[in-house]
Design a protein around this nucleic acid. Structure first.
Length: 543
RNA sequence: GGGGCGGUAGCUCAACGGUAGAGCAUUGCCCUUUUAAGGCAAGGGUUCUGGGUUCGAAUCCCAGCCGCCUCACCA
């Protein structure tokens, strides 16, 4: 076949650096392409009409005996990527892979002819091929295709990772996700499951009378959450825009407009840190229903989570990080109850509702807690910002005391108003709002509330946020006059909620990093050229 | 941003101050029911980069780059 002569044929002599193996294989395989072309093979044909998917073949014939197959000689045309090849002189075995399933091929010269066998000898691991033949069982009983015709569909010019261990290098897995998907079946399974989760959610919302909508990703004001936004610019309008941090304010405008039940599954963008639980762009399911409140949504969310877990994993109890999470029955604590329930004994008496009702009491509780808290323990200290409102401190206290303990799916309800500028206050406690969050696996999974629909109160809340911003809180919410105008036309009583799809997928797929449930997580860009690019340049004489 | 761990052949990994190796993959030869096929032979390395210590560095030291984990921020 002459592969070894390939480097010299291209005359790399003048100042060309030594080729790495990667380039070597690339050039070998290009040489095989030329050899295939010389055999009259079309190198990049346009289609292959298959008779069955590999999955369909397994579904239909796995139960049939070798004798039955021999009697009927079922003709098949199948396609896929070559993932294993075992040569045996003038015959050979291969495994074809397609959509996560595999089927064995048996190729022998007397069945495919000399020309067909010449093609077979020029195939490599990773090539896409289509074959025609009939089904049979080998001596060991494996369902296989007895190949009679073999077509190259697309050649793999670069070597696949090692077949037994798969692709392990974490960076390569994320940068070249296609290799991860080719080599690691469990990775493929996670993304199949993610798709299933979204599908089940869509069905559940549709069944509840919701319509799916899309609202702007580019917004003149980044509202609906507290986070640093990404900034971009529209040239024709000479307009600075923010990638949205949340769709909330647009979805509620739709409820003003009479779309009573709306949901959106789409990306949010937050210009903040990257961690195992944070990616700068992440997928949020956000939904609003008119004439409802947070109690309705708490109950519905609990049902929904159990239903999704059941339909996706087969059980409402799911394994996550070595624990069994029971989505069938969620615990519920008010935020104040949760602080008391998980209060460290060493810190003395847990704070009462009365103590948490004013700044002095809250500061005393934080001081008691911080006296026993220490970094690197489960009780991290509360970092008290100067002059932070009592509500902000209470929320911080909750996160420090309780959040890490919320492994089992748990609803935390009734939040301080100071951290909830868009939520309706409780009728009997004006400093607290009708808001809840769902925690599971130690992560915040969902956030919902009764929507504040009083435009006068909403303006006051925005002004409070502006004050916090002036005191140095860069993430405090900005004033949105257009949103207030929408409220002035009347927002019916409404409840809304956001569910983090990435985190939900982590929980239901037992993935410990958000990067394992996002196909292309954000990474620092690669620098430099690939070996193949260098080889191409060398061949073209550009070096 | 702080702390910890890591980067060796295309891939998965050894070698831990003294000649850079194995398996898979690749190339050649043999092999018509194998399946991590097998046998024989061969090729393939800027040990992330740059300094330093040393007779000698993949190994020790310093700096940088990249990645992972973790803390902080956040969902």
């Amino acid at each position: 076949m002459g592969q070894r002569s390939a480097p010299s044929r291209y005359n790399f002599a003048r100042g060309t650096p030594p080729l790495s193996l990667d380039q070597d294989i690339y050039l070998q395989r290009q040489e095989k392409l030329r050899a295939l072309a010389a055999l009259g093979v079309e190198l990049y044909p346009r289609r292959f009409a298959f008779s069955h998917t590999l999955a369909a073949i397994h579904a239909a014939f796995d139960a049939q005996s070798g004798e039955a197959l021999e009697a009927t000689r079922v003709p098949v045309r199948v396609a896929g990527r070559l993932m294993a090849m075992r040569g045996h002189g003038k015959a050979g075995f291969a495994h074809l892979a397609q959509e996560g399933t595999r089927l064995q091929l048996y190729v022998r010269q007397d069945a495919v002819g000399e020309a067909g066998f010449a093609i077979w000898k020029l195939l490599d691991l990773g090539d896409f091929i289509g074959v025609e033949g009939y089904l049979f069982r080998t001596r060991t009983g494996e369902l296989s295709v007895h190949v009679e015709r073999l077509d190259l569909l697309a050649k793999d010019l670069l070597p696949l990772p090692e077949k037994w261990h798969g692709l392990q290098d974490v960076e390569t897995r994320y940068r070249q996700r296609y290799l991860d998907l080719v080599m690691n079946p469990e990775v493929r399974e996670i993304f199949v499951r993610r798709s299933r989760i979204v599908q089940v959610l869509r069905e559940a919302f549709t069944a509840r009378g919701y319509m799916e909508v899309e609202t702007p990703m580019m917004q003149p004001l980044a509202g609906g959450a507290m986070a640093r936004p990404f900034v971009t610019h529209h040239h024709a309008l000479d307009l600075s825009l923010y990638l949205r941090i949340a769709p909330e304010l647009y979805l509620k405008r739709l409820v003003v407009g009479g779309l009573d039940r709306v949901f959106e599954i789409n990306r949010n963008f937050r210009n903040e840190g990257i961690s195992t639980q944070h990616n700068p762009e992440f997928t949020m399911l956000e939904f609003y229903e008119a004439y409802s409140d947070y109690r309705v949504l708490m109950d519905w969310s609990e049902v929904l989570m159990a239903q999704v877990a059941e339909q996706v994993t087969g059980s409402s109890t799911v394994s996550f990080a070595g624990q069994h999470l029971e989505f069938g029955k969620m615990r519920r604590y008010s935020m104040r109850e949760a602080i008391r329930a998980f209060w460290p004994a060493a810190a003395g008496g847990a704070p009462s509702d009365l103590e948490l009702a004013d700044a002095a009491g809250v500061n005393a509780a934080v001081a008691r807690y911080n006296a026993v808290a220490a970094p690197e323990t489960r009780f991290a200290p509360v970092r008290a910002t100067k002059d932070a409102p009592a509500g902000v401190l209470i929320a911080a206290l909750f996160e420090a005391v309780a959040e890490a303990e919320l492994i089992q799916p748990t609803i935390i309800y009734d939040f301080p108003l100071a951290v909830s500028p868009l939520a309706k206050s409780k009728p009997d406690e004006p400093d607290w709002v009708e808001r809840f969050e769902i925690y599971a696996g130690g992560m915040e999974l969902a956030n919902g509330y009764s929507e504040l629909n009083d435009p006068v109160e909403q303006r006051r809340r925005f002004e409070m946020q502006l004050q916090q911003r002036e005191q140095g809180d860069a993430e405090a919410h900005g004033m949105d006059e257009d949103y207030i105008r929408a409220l002035q036309y009347g927002l019916p009583p409404t409840a809304g909620e956001g569910i983090g799809i990435d985190r939900l997928t982590m929980l239901l797929a037992d993935a410990r990093s958000i990067r394992d449930v996002i196909l292309f997580p954000l990474l620092r860009p690669e620098t430099g050229k690939s070996d193949a690019a260098q080889a191409d340049e060398a061949v073209a004489g550009n070096v």
